[in-house]
Every structure is written in structure tokens, then in C-alpha cells.
Design a protein around this nucleic acid. Structure first.
Lengths: 342, 342
DNA sequence: CTGTTAGCGCGTTCAG
DNA sequence: CTGAACGCGCTAACAG
């Protein structure tokens, strides 16, 4: 692999002239430029960005650390981040933590070593240590999707509490009085916020809180299956299940099928996070939709504002609205059919 | 951000001793090691892997360049690649090309500049130029999922031709005589191979080939919708649709719904690529399943074999088998119900 | 066991 | 318009 020196020798100029051609900086005579370009083509020269970054102290790369590549919610978010980054002519490194803090910490260590210019983080758990670790190295970071306590950091997220509140209200308006909430890990803010919204809706309505109706688990299909089975086995089982994300919903739906229960005739089921149109052969699930793409895009824009020093000193917290989409998985309890369209 | 020199000064040793502690190489007295470790902790020192890689001429990073982050087929493949890489203590950079050769070429250029140690490539189009570009720089590359013509390169892929052949046979055995194949871009080998398998099944059976029944498009939902509409408008419309991937299938299914056609009563629909269990609330589609995870894992293992010089000189072509999973989207033509289970 | 020297490939500085 | 010298942060090779 040839170096800038090889190119210089080949073109009969100094390395500096080659460098100027490469970076379009300073003045180079037309003749010299042509000779350099010919040498580059002939040698198949590829500049070494390691050396370049070492000198320039910037990598023009940001990292997106997130918790699940297999979840379209996050891949959509990733796409938003990539689109924003490419407008600034930056590259994005995608890092999948699988909801594991250990993996996350390993990635963060590697990324700091690689000297990425900034980090977009969906924290595996809502703790501030990882954020402070990054900040201690002077690397700008924007937290996405989830809150972290007591950290001075920019955050772009959705209003989980409100989304959960509205969906719970919707179910209550249908007549449901026994709604189970199947949520994620207690250490994740979105999992907790969705519980808070749910509880607020219930208590506003003067409804008793049944502890057994709120179950913490993981954002996975397997966990959704288990949690659903658990609440269905209760002496007074729920007439509606509210899943805190799409994977939990898928597992819960399977548990209903296995129990021989019809949706929404016997039990309603609703969830956070829509599936992309390409997934659902027939859109069926009533959902709280979150603007994943926008979240990725806006978080990345905020990161670049920080990188270029254009953002205000104070930390920003951008909270995006959610939207309820009613489909065919929800209906009134004990009434065949419910509010079906067809 | 502190450097190795700061640490050395702080610990009262030379930079070389610090380097030895960091890399666990050579001899360091217990006392010196402790002083160095204390200094590292106190300063929050993070080694600069740019400088390290510049010296050592290896980044311990491989890149996975693939065509669609939002498709679970590829994210599953990515997971296989990541798992294999992490066993070798390597990092993986994920690059999403969106089926665009322009994006792909841009990523490849960046990756070569970043001096990744190897590249795993799902080529956006089945052309050999990008592969040769990489090889010219002496960077090992393994092609995945798709063939490239006339290139001396390792390939790990599935047997698309055979999978398509078997699925077509299955449809013919059900009694179908008018099967439309909705496939991807003509420039992609998997799209073409699936046509070849389809044609072989038809001609083996002595069936006439109807040109209008084979439609090339994109691996997207929108394209699937359009292609389905096109064949449904034919004078003699198909009794079965065979989609070349899951996104095409989703679009085709929607076109059937919009046309008021029932599946599989009126029309059968089958496809390549299963959806992960977490997606399909009710597994419904009859599919040709491909071992995506294994493909990612094995391709990565092959890449590491090359990196360590353990692989045989000759290029390998690993062809993984596909598997047909019959569900409820396929039945006999003109017969209500067909081979439904429940 | 430890330190010194040199150089990885590039770009900044400053003098021609 | 062009080039020489230096250093980014780190480690291989060699002394001591």
C-alpha cells in the first residue's frame, strides 16, 4: 500500500504538494496537480485516515450506540442518524449493545480509543456513569430515547409517560377496567415512564391500582410471552394487555393464541412502537407510534450543533410527541367485535 | 485528553514502560506497573488507537457492508458476523448501503482509508469491480449472499437457484400452472438465480414459459406492490405469487388485499426469507428460509482464516442450503381452503 | 527489568 | 506556488 511519499516521488514533487492536492488547500500549479493526480491513479494510492486523524485530531466519524439491531424501531432511528450525518459529510459507526451494559461499556471504551468526534447513545440502562465516562474525555454525547438521571447532557426522546397515559385512557374509554401493563426492565426509563403514564390514567379515573397488573421484564418476545402468561393466570385476569414495546407485544400475542383467546373479542392487546409497513402483512395492532426516524435525525443534528459550538451552553431536552394509531387488536371488553372497521 | 507521555511523567517512568503495561508485553516490575496503573486511573487516560494502529499496521476492525439495515434478514446476518468477530476480539463496523452502488463505493473508499483489516461485503450489484478495488489494496474480502462474476474471491451464500426450484415445484405439486415470480433487480445474482430455479422447475415439468410471469423490480415493499398489480392485470392472471424476498412479499400481499383477493383461497403467495418470530404476530407466510445468522458467522470465520493465513490459497465458495417452511399462505388453486392446518 | 532512538503517514509552519 | 522540518501518539528494536 503506497504512501503519500510514494506519490510525491512518482510525481516528482514534495509530499506537501500531494497533500495540497488531496485536501484542495493552498495553491498548486495546474501542471503539478495533474502529475500528482496521475501518480495517485497509477499507484492506486489511498490516503491513510489514521495518520490524517492523528494529525488533525478529528475523525469525521460519530458513533451510534444502540440496544437492538433487530428492532425496526432502532434501525429506523439509525437511518435518521445516518441521513443527518451524511449531510455533514460525517460517517456513522453503528454499535449494537443487545441491551447489555457490559457490551455497551466495551463499545464505549473502543470508541473513545478510536477517537470518534461524538457519540449518540441509547443507554442500555438509565444510569449516568457511562455518560459521564464519555464526557470526562471531552467527547460530545447526545442521549437518545431514554433518560439518564442527574446528568448534564443533551437528550432527545419521546414522551413515554404521555403516550402510555393516552393509550391507557383509550382502553378505559372502551370500557376496560382490568388492564395489564407488560413493560421492560425497571432500570430503563422508558419502561418506568410507561408505567407512570399508565398509573396516572388509572388514578385520575379513580380506579384502584392492582400491583399484579404491572409486570417488569425484558424488551423481548420471550419475556412478553412469560409476562402475558403470568397475568392471564391471575384470579381476575385482564381484559386488555398493554405492551411496552413491539417485541413484548409479539410474545404476548402468541401467549394469547396459545391460551385459545381471540383478539380483540376475548382480550384486547395494544403496544408501543409500530411495525414498519413492510413487516405487517396486515396492519393489525393498535399502537403508540414513536417518531423513530426524527429522533435519530434530531439527535444527530443536536450533536453536530455541539461539535461546531453552535448550540447554547445549557443542555437541551427535546421531547417528541407520540401518536396513537387505532387498528383491530383493541375493542370493548365482553363485547364481540368491538370497534372494528371491517 | 492525556497521552502516554503524561502517564509516564505522572508515574515517573518512560513511555515505553507505560506501553508495556498497556499491552501486557515484556517485563515490568510489580512496583512500576502499580504506579503506572495508578497514573492511568488518576488521569483517566484512554490510549489512542489511531496512533496505535498507525504503528502496528492493524486496526483489529473489520467492516460489514450490507444493503439494508431495516431488513431482519441482514440484521440477523450482521449478528452472526458480530458474534464471530467478537470471538476473535475484533470490532465490526456496520455500513448500510441501501442497495445503492454509489453509497457502497463511498463506504468502501472510507473503509480503505480507515485501514480496516478486512471487509465483509454484500454487493449492491453483482459486479466484480468493487471487489477488485478492495483486493487491489491488499485487503481481504469475503462476499456474502450474492455472487460476483469472474472474481477470484471467497463467497458465502445460499442456494437461491435450488430454493426457488423447490418452492416452484411445491406450488406445481399443489396444482398451480400459472405462477408469477416477483424478483429483485436484474443486476443482483440472487434475483436472477431465483428466476433460474423457477424456470428449471417449469421446464422440467414441460410447462410453457410465460415471459410476463417473471417480473424484475426492487427488493422493496413498493416494488412488490407494483409487480403484483402488474401480473394481476394480465389476461390470464396467476393463481400463485412467488416473491423473491420478504419486502416484495409484503407489498404483493397488500396488492392482493387491495384487489379484494383472499389468500390462499383466491391466490397463493410464497416468498424467500422468513420473518423473525418477533415480527409475525401469527406466522402465516409459506417461505424459503435462508440461514442468515450462519451465513454471517461463517463468512466472518472465513475472513479471519484469510487474515491469519490459515485458509487454503484457492478461493472458497460456501453454499448454504435453504429450507421450505409451509404455512397458511399457500394452497391449491380454485379449491377453497387448500392445505390449511387450522 | 527499563530507557533511548527512530519512524509509522500525514499536515502545519514557515521559509524560500 | 513549493518544500524542509517537525510532531501528532504510539511501539519495535535495540541498548543498558
Amino acid at each position: 500500500m503506497s504512501t503519500i511519499r510514494d506519490v510525491a516521488r512518482h510525481a516528482g514533487v514534495s509530499t506537501m504538494t500531494v497533500s495540497r492536492v488531496l485536501n484542495n488547500s493552498g495553491y498548486v500549479s495546474v501542471e503539478a496537480r495533474e502529475r500528482v493526480e496521475a501518480a495517485i491513479a497509477e499507484l492506486g494510492y489511498v490516503p491513510n485516515s489514521l495518520a490524517r486523524s492523528l494529525r488533525s485530531k478529528q475523525t469525521r466519524t460519530v458513533a451510534l450506540v444502540f440496544t437492538d439491531v433487530t428492532n425496526p424501531f432502532f434501525t429506523t432511528l439509525a437511518r435518521g442518524a445516518e441521513d443527518a450525518a451524511s449531510h455533514h459529510d460525517f460517517n456513522v459507526i453503528l454499535c449494537n449493545t443487545d441491551e447489555s451494559e457490559a457490551k455497551q461499556d466495551r463499545y464505549l471504551a473502543v470508541l473513545l480509543q478510536k477517537r470518534v468526534d461524538g457519540i449518540l447513545l441509547v443507554p442500555a440502562r438509565s444510569r449516568s456513569e457511562p455518560v459521564m465516562l464519555i464526557q470526562r474525555q471531552g467527547v460530545p454525547v447526545v442521549v437518545m430515547d431514554r433518560r439518564v438521571p442527574a446528568a448534564q447532557v443533551d437528550v432527545v426522546r419521546c414522551d413515554s409517560e404521555r403516550g402510555a397515559y393516552e393509550m391507557t385512557r383509550y382502553l378505559m374509554d372502551l370500557g376496560h377496567r382490568h388492564i395489564a401493563l407488560l413493560t421492560g426492565p425497571e432500570g430503563v426509563s422508558t419502561a418506568r415512564d410507561r408505567v407512570l403514564g399508565y398509573l396516572r390514567a388509572l388514578s385520575e379515573d379513580g380506579q384502584p391500582i392492582e400491583d399484579a397488573m404491572v409486570v417488569y421484564g425484558d424488551f423481548t418476545q420471550a419475556s412478553g410471552y412469560d409476562m402475558a402468561q403470568q397475568v392471564l393466570g391471575l384470579p381476575l385476569p385482564p381484559t386488555a394487555l398493554f405492551a411496552a414495546n413491539n417485541f413484548i407485544a409479539a410474545g404476548a400475542f402468541r401467549a394469547l393464541s396459545d391460551a385459545g383467546l381471540e383478539v380483540p373479542t376475548d382480550v384486547s392487546i395494544v403496544t408501543f412502537d409500530d411495525l414498519p409497513a413492510a413487516w405487517a402483512y396486515e396492519p393489525f395492532m393498535t399502537v403508540v407510534e414513536q417518531p423513530a426516524y426524527d429522533m435519530g435525525y434530531q439527535a444527530t443534528e443536536l450533536l453536530f450543533a455541539r461539535l461546531s459550538g453552535q448550540a447554547p451552553d445549557a443542555c437541551q431536552e427535546v421531547i417528541l410527541p407520540t401518536r396513537i394509531i387505532v387498528r383491530h387488536s383493541s375493542g370493548s371488553p365482553l363485547v364481540t367485535g368491538g370497534p372494528r372497521d371491517h
